[in-house]
Design a protein around this nucleic acid. Structure first.
Lengths: 339, 339
DNA sequence: GATTAGCACTCGGAGTCGGTGAGTGCCACC
DNA sequence: GGTGGCACTCACCGACTCCGAGTGCTAATC
């Protein structure tokens, strides 16, 4: 009873099933893969694999289908992810580098990933929390309205309008702008509170209220988790032909529209692993995603990722290829943002 | 042969079919609508309506279904759009007004519309071309990199990084910023070229190249039609249960992901009419949308719309309700952006 | 002890076939 | 012009059969 061969059989089942979308039987298995034994032997192995919970049969007279547990084993131990070819890699790089701004980079990344994996791709915008501030700009709109523009080092821009109770003294703005930027530039968000607090004391008492309001807006804006944005592409891939996945589309689309769900998911996966991480079927708590797998990776930042990208599809997906694509796009995305 | 009654019959057919999603026969028609005549009479009318191309039968022994032409007549002449109730209107207003910035307004609008119509909603970002500039900001990032931030009167923000050949003389930036804003503030994009050109001449010759580059970037950014962005929501509504529309999902999703397609569509519809306009089934050239109808309206700007919103669903949709919702959201959106 | 050949068995899917009923078109009549 | 009546059509449904892929088991073989 060779354990190695059983794993070979599991690998073969996963590969075949991913390719054909049909339960795979013992005969086709020995035909398509050179396993060197007869169907009967395979059947014994399959019985053992089923006993162990790695595969299941939809109904008595059908072939076997991998279970979530089977996919998990496959992903963890049985698949080798082949790196992309040199031309592919080059194409990715060129495509991303020709983006004009952050929105464009993100947009291109998500489309690219959707196209590479033939699945739904999601890209999270670089987190404000973890980015450093490049510049703060104050623009008086009227004498009671102040526009605050926040620019981060990776090119993200946020703006807020501030309604003031009292008219704005003209002289304050330039000074406030200068001091704010001095206090803030280059620092990461988490490091902000103290220098800002220190700064307030340097203003005359009558301006303190205003200064505090501006600081408040900046902090609020940067702290708002709701501002985490996600873009996605490739939803049409969900509706691929010839698959019962069609029945599952609705809940998946609903989950995808709930950015909160996606964000939590990506965040959880960030804890799983530093590199590429995979969630398979029921490993996702969210009910609508129980027949869905997600492959995600962080990007940006050295060491600590600034945000994440992911690819989402039926559990029956090409894990090796998807993992390779996700990793590649994440890598080039990091490179482009750093450059 | 009363022409009026025939139209009543058509109206009844459309209403019933939209509600039940099943071909409607002469009997149920007289049962559900008080038409005051017998099924046989209705059958005669139906024969005439079919002859005229307003309805069709899927197969011989089935009831009738409206054709695109039938829907068109219904929309143009037979449906009265009931305004939303006061509480509904109030809810919309409150919901939109509590948005914190432009992104948030757009995001809320599109979700709201999707929820109101139970269909896919799309919202086009306010066009840069037609907006006026509120402020231009120049931020030196390094001595060879200049960040240009463009802020419009409706809150949209665009940024571009400018790579310079020569190091940036420190003194130029503040002056350039001041002059640019003086030349530009409050003007609409189409009116920009001359004042900018005029401005260049006021700089010393050695700075002219730099000034021209900055101006160039501004003009390019604003001119780029590709920068027109669209957001959408409610794609899950496409996968509603109990409808053959399920088969049509794929091409629709594909069309929706091609922002270009959507943009062209919305633009074309802008030509159709100033108010709410409707495209039904084959009236859309795009192949994937031949079983889809779109209801769109402009928003923002007085008189001339700054961008558009729309709702998209199967031709078999509740036109009266959708039109009412689209119009309402467009109106409140305009109000929020103006305020 | 592992592998294999052979064989009986199971059961989903595809194909066939009337029965049923909704709906129509037409005709004669009011 | 409107209506009742009637013959006709045809998609849908359930029952039934047939087929074959695939299995598990047992006994023979390496």
């Amino acid at each position: 009873m060779s354990d190695d061969r059983r794993l070979d059989v599991l690998r073969a089942i996963v590969q075949d099933y991913v390719q054909t979308h049909e339960p795979v039987g013992s005969r086709v298995l020995v035909e398509r893969h050179s396993l060197g034994v007869s169907p009967a032997t395979i059947r014994n192995d399959m019985a053992a694999l089923e006993e162990a919970g790695y595969i299941a049969q939809p109904h008595t007279s059908a072939g076997r289908v991998p279970t979530d547990k089977g996919y998990r084993l496959f992903v963890d131990r049985l698949s080798r992810i082949k790196p992309l070819s040199a031309p592919e890699a080059k194409a990715i790089q060129v495509f991303l580098e020709s983006a004009v701004d952050l929105d464009d980079v993100v947009d291109r990344s998500v489309r690219l990933l959707a196209q590479l994996t033939h699945q739904v791709a999601v890209v999270q915008y670089p987190s404000l929390r973890r980015s450093a501030l490049r510049h703060l700009e104050l623009v008086p709109v009227t004498d009671r309205r102040l526009l605050v523009v926040i620019i981060t080092d990776n090119g993200r821009v946020e703006q807020r309008v501030l309604d003031l109770d009292d008219p704005l003294p003209g002289h304050v703005v330039p000074e406030l702008r200068a001091r704010l930027n001095a206090a803030v530039a280059g620092r990461r968000l988490v490091d902000l509170p103290e220098p800002l607090e220190l700064m307030v004391t340097q203003f005359p008492a009558e301006d303190e209220a205003l200064v505090r309001r501006v600081i408040r807006v900046v902090e609020d804006t940067l702290a708002e988790a709701t501002e985490e944005r996600i873009v996605m592409a490739g939803t049409a891939n969900l509706a691929r032909s010839g698959t019962d996945f069609t029945q599952t589309i609705r809940p998946v689309l609903e989950a995808l529209e709930e950015q909160v769900v996606l964000l939590r998911l990506l965040t959880e996966m960030a804890d799983d692993s530093a590199g590429v991480s995979v969630r398979i079927g029921h490993e996702n708590q969210h009910a609508g995603l129980s027949e869905t797998s997600i492959v995600a990776a962080g990007y940006g930042g050295d060491g600590e990722a600034v945000a994440r990208i992911g690819s989402l599809g039926p559990t029956r997906m090409d894990y090796a290829g998807t993992i390779a694509s996700v990793r590649a796009v994440a890598r080039y995305l990091s490179r482009v943002l750093a450059g």
